Simulated assay, not measured.
Amino acid sequence: MITILCSGSRGDFQPYIALAQELKELGKDVRITGMREFEGFVRGYGVDFYPIQADFKSLNVDESILKEAQSADNPLKMLLTFNKMKGYGLSIANEFYAACEESELIKKALI
């Protein structure tokens, strides 16, 4: 199993859908992992999907922090903004790890 981790907008998912389709044609088991709101979009292209629960709304990430991150005009501002979002980062990292537990590389690393 190959698990492709993806987050962001629809445009972030599109290239990975094409990659997943090509890997499927090569005989690989493949799935994309991302926020549950993209499940129908990904599955609509015949690609398996593993939804994660972490999203900005369910984790109560303050929208003003998101706007700060998007408008940060230097690396220090961006770092300070992302430091405020640490809980979200840890949550999504844990869910992405869980999504990969059945993947080839994770299984080989644990053997």
Rank of each mutant, 00 (worst) to 15 (best):
M85E: 10
T33Q: 03
N60M: 05
Y88S: 09
K28M: 03
V47W: 05
L76Q: 12
Q70P: 00
Y45S: 10
K57I: 06
R36K: 13
P75I: 06
Q70N: 00
Q14G: 03
F56K: 06
S91K: 13
A99E: 10
I106T: 09
E95Q: 14
Y50V: 01
A99K: 05
K108D: 05
R36H: 08
G11R: 11
K107I: 14
Q70F: 11
Y88I: 08
V30Y: 09
I17F: 09
M85T: 13
Q14H: 12
S58A: 12
Q70L: 12
I32R: 07
K77Q: 13
L59G: 06
E104A: 15
P15E: 03
F13N: 01
L26R: 14
A99R: 04
N83V: 12
K86G: 04
A93Q: 14
S103V: 04
N94L: 11
E101S: 05
A99T: 08
D48I: 01
I17S: 04
M78F: 15
Q53H: 12
P15N: 06
I92Y: 06
Y16S: 03
K84I: 10
E63N: 07
K28P: 00
K24M: 09
G87V: 02
K86Q: 09
R43H: 00
K84Q: 15
I17V: 14
F13T: 04
L59K: 08
N83D: 12
E101F: 07
D55N: 15
F13Q: 06
K107V: 14
L26S: 05
E25W: 01
N60P: 01
K108C: 02
Y97P: 00
I65L: 15
Y45M: 00
K24G: 02
D12T: 10
R31W: 04
D55Y: 05
C100Y: 12
A93W: 14
E22V: 02
D29S: 11
F49V: 01
Q21D: 02
I52E: 14
V30A: 06
A72C: 13
K57L: 04
I32H: 10
K84H: 12
I52L: 13
Y97Q: 05
F13V: 13
K84W: 13
V61K: 09
V61T: 09
V47M: 05
I65E: 08
E104T: 15
K84F: 13
M78S: 08
D62Y: 08
R36T: 00
F96L: 05
K57G: 01
A98R: 14
I106F: 15
F38M: 06
I52H: 13
F13L: 10
E25T: 08
G27V: 03
K77M: 07
E68W: 12
A72K: 08
N83S: 14
K107T: 13
N60W: 06
G27I: 02
C100S: 15
E39W: 02
N74K: 03
S71L: 09
